[in-house]
Write a protein that binds this DNA or RNA. Structure first.
Length: 421
RNA sequence: GUGGGUGUAGCUCAGCUGGCAGAGCACCGGGUUGUGAUCCCGGUUGUCGCGGGUUCGACCCCCGUCACUCACCCCA
C-alpha cells in the first residue's frame, strides 16, 4: 500500500460512493438552473495575484493555504482555493456586467487548499457555487439562500441549520473592529502570539475561536449589529424579511465571521450538527467590493459555495444516502458462442433505444451469470442459449417476481421496451 | 504548522504474558449437466506499513520513519 495512493488529502471516489457524489452535485445545481442561473466553466488555476488581491493578503487561505507554483514561463500561478474571485474575473473579462443585470451564474468543480486533512477537510474538494452580480437587491441575497436551502432539502437533509449575520459596510466594520480591539485587548490579549496577531489585524476572527477559554472570555463581546449603519441595517432587515416570506427558517447569528476578506453586509452559513469539527456544508455572502479589489468597476454581488464532499458526509450522518442507481435494466445471460454474439447485438440495439442493458462477460456458467444479473440491479434477465436460438426465442425473466416466459427473438427488443419505458 | 490515536487478506476487524497468520463480509466454483437474491460445501487473496534493535523465538517489546486518522488552527 502507498505505492499507488493519491497525494495527501486528495480523495478518490469510486462506485458506489462516486454515484452519491454525483447525485449531490445534481441536487445542488438543479434548483439553480430552474432559477435562471447560467453555467460558468472556469480555469482551475489563475494568476497568484488574482487570489491575493481578491481573497485578501491577510486571509489564512492566501497567506498559508494556497497551492502556488511557478510555470515554465516563470509566472506564479495558483490552483484555485475558491470560486468567487475567478467568477468575478470571468464576468469582467467577458463584459457581462454591461449586459442584462443581474448576471446569475453557477459553476462546479474542484478547489484546492494546502491544509492538514481531517474529517470534512481535504486538499482537493468539490464545490458547487452560485453568484449573482450587478444589483444589491436584498431579494437576491434571499433567493440564493433559498436555493441552497432547497438543494439540501431535496437531498433529504433535515437537520441543517442556517446561520445568518451581517458584516455591515466597510465603515461599520472598521468602526466595530476598533471597538472590538479595545474590548478584547485586556481580556484575551497576551494569550498567545496568534491571538495577538488577530486582535491587531482582524479582531472579528477572534470571535470564531473554538477554544473553550476564548469562548468563555468573549461571550459578552460587543456585537457588530450595535454599530450598523442605516443602509446596512435596512439591507439586513430586508434580507430577513425576504427569507421569512420565502419560508426559509434561519438563526440570527451576530457573531458570524467569514474567513475571506471580500465579504460585506450579508453573510450566512449552513451548519450540520452531526458533522464534527468541519461542520459548515455551505456558506456565502455579499461581496460588493470584490470587483474593485481586482481592478474592475463597481459591481455588487452575492454568492455562495456548497461543499459537495461535506454534504455527502452529512447524508451519511443522517442516514439518507441515495440508493446507487441500477447499472442495468435488462441483463443478458448468454449460453454458448452463438448466443453470446446475438446477445451482444441485442444489448447494443436496446442501448441505442435508451434502455440500460448489459450482459454476462467471460463465459460464465448459468449460475454465475444469473448472479451477475441479480447484482446489476436489473429488473429483467434474458436467458439465451443455443437451444433458444434454434427455437427463435429467448427466455425473459422478471427478476422480482421470478416469472419467466418465452418471447420470439424478433419481438424481444419491443417487448422489453414496452415493459420498461 | 501543533497535539492525540491507528497501521494485520479487497473491506471491517480479532490475535491472550513474546510461541504454527485468523474470523466475518466480499469474490470465484460446486451442490442443481439451463436459472439469481435464501441455504449447504469448497477455494483464491498476506513484505502483519517500512527500517533497525532486544530475544532461542517478535504481529506483540524498544528506537526511528512513513502513511492514515481525529482534534487545534482554518474553512466549503
Amino acid at each position: 500500500m502507498g505505492d499507488f495512493a493519491p497525494p495527501k488529502g486528495v480523495p478518490d471516489y469510486v462506485p458506489p460512493r462516486s454515484e452519491a457524489l454525483l447525485a449531490v452535485r445534481e441536487a445542488m445545481t438543479a434548483p439553480l438552473r430552474l432559477a435562471g442561473y447560467g453555467y460558468l466553466e472556469l480555469p482551475v488555476f489563475e494568476d497568484t495575484s488574482l487570489f491575493a488581491r481578491g481573497v485578501g493578503e491577510t486571509s489564512d487561505v492566501v497567506s498559508k493555504e494556497m497551492f502556488t507554483f511557478t510555470d515554465r514561463g516563470n509566472r506564479s500561478v495558483t490552483l484555485r482555493p475558491e470560486g468567487t474571485v475567478g467568477a468575478v474575473r470571468a464576468v469582467l473579462e467577458a463584459g457581462l456586467e454591461r449586459g442584462a443585470l443581474p448576471v446569475k451564474l453557477w459553476y462546479a468543480g474542484p478547489m484546492f487548499r494546502y491544509e492538514q486533512p481531517q474529517s470534512g477537510r481535504q486538499r482537493q474538494f468539490t464545490q458547487v457555487g452560485a453568484e449573482a452580480m450587478g444589483t444589491d437587491d436584498p431579494l437576491l441575497d434571499a433567493e440564493l439562500i433559498a436555493l441552497a436551502d432547497q438543494a439540501f432539502r431535496s437531498l433529504g437533509l433535515t437537520q441543517t441549520v442556517l446561520h445568518l449575520g451581517t458584516l455591515g459596510d466597510p465603515e461599520d466594520r472598521a468602526d466595530y473592529s476598533e471597538r472590538l480591539r479595545a474590548w478584547l485587548t485586556p481580556r484575551v490579549g497576551g494569550l498567545d502570539e496568534e491571538t495577538d496577531r488577530r486582535i491587531a489585524k482582524n479582531p472579528l476572527r477572534v470571535l470564531d475561536d473554538k477554544r473553550p477559554e476564548v469562548r468563555k472570555a468573549t461571550v459578552d463581546a460587543p456585537l457588530l449589529t450595535e454599530v450598523l449603519s442605516g443602509a446596512a441595517r435596512a439591507h439586513h432587515e430586508a434580507v430577513r424579511a425576504c427569507l421569512s416570506d420565502l419560508g426559509v427558517p434561519f438563526l440570527d447569528d451576530p457573531r458570524l465571521v467569514r474567513g475571506l476578506d471580500y465579504y460585506r453586509r450579508t453573510t450566512f452559513e449552513f451548519v450540520h450538527p452531526l458533522l464534527g469539527a468541519q461542520s459548515t456544508i455551505g456558506a456565502g455572502g455579499r461581496y460588493d467590493g470584490l470587483s474593485q479589489a481586482i481592478g474592475g468597476p463597481e459591481l455588487p454581488g452575492v454568492g455562495w459555495a456548497l461543499g459537495v464532499d461535506r454534504t455527502l458526509l452529512a447524508l451519511d450522518a443522517e442516514g439518507v444516502l441515495p440508493e446507487p442507481p441500477a447499472r442495468a435494466a435488462v441483463f443478458f445471460v448468454p449460453l454458448g458462442v452463438a448466443a453470446k454474439a446475438r446477445s451482444a447485438a441485442l444489448v447494443a440495439e436496446l442501448r441505442r433505444g435508451g434502455v440500460a442493458a448489459d450482459l454476462a462477460y467471460g463465459d460464465r456458467g448459468m449460475k454465475g451469470a444469473m448472479k451477475a444479473a441479480d447484482r446489476s440491479g436489473a429488473s429483467y434477465a434474458v436467458v439465451l442459449g443455443d437451444r433458444d436460438l434454434e427455437a427463435g426465442e429467448a427466455q425473459l425473466k422478471d427478476l422480482r417476481s421470478g416469472e419467466q416466459a418465452a418471447v420470439p427473438l424478433t419481438d424481444l427488443v419491443s417487448t422489453v421496451k414496452g415493459k420498461l419505458l
